[in-house]
Amino acid sequence: MMASEISLGLMELSVVRELTNIGLGHATTSLSEMTGRKFTISVPDVESLSLERIPELLGGCEAYAAGIYMPIEGDVTGHIAFLLPWPSVRSLWKMLLGTEPCDPSEITEMDASALLEIGNIINGSFLSAIADMTNLAMHSTPPYLAIEMSAAILDAIVVEASSKDHLALAIRTTITEAEGSLEGFFVYIPSIGGLRHLFASLGIAEAA
């Protein structure tokens, strides 16, 4: 796989974890405001997972999954995606819309736009948290959604990201609501220059 695995020191990992926690805190608020329900989003672990391992965590290479992907523009360019295994996608629809398509072929416009909106909020909050802390400009661009074989979604993201050299970071995320909880994965692929920029602006010497 082209986007090689990021290797961050403990210090950098804890910074990313903290940024993620803050970002997801923002996302939780927006999500609760939008739906009128109480959500919590937690980050049990920030791992530098290899992108190749993600399909396996989403239920296998050929398992259905959803991916909401956004290119990032500004001082720290890169790519961000939020990936959900199929059972999580269904739970999310149930939470948000009260109904859930049983089969991927029954997905409606409404189902798709609900997922795009959620992805937009989650990815956008993550970016604005980082931007606020670092004073760097990071602009999210309109999101794209795929509901497909998990490996095919990853394949498309890696292709988009690999026009230049990139590193990848995967963050396991749990979204909890009164009716249950679901798991998703955040994939953050900053450009190498962007990452250097990011750590420098936080006053941390880069490990990688």
């Binding site: 991916g67 798709a112 795009l116 309109p142 999101p143 794209y144 959604l145 795929a146 095919a152 988009e160």
Partner: peptide, 18 residues
């Protein structure tokens, strides 16, 4: 060579590397 990201906010996907 598919365009798996078929849904987008403006209904116009620019991701055509496939």
């Amino acid at each position: 060579g598919a365009q798996v990201f078929k849904f987008s906010a403006n209904n116009e996907s620019k991701l055509d590397i496939g």
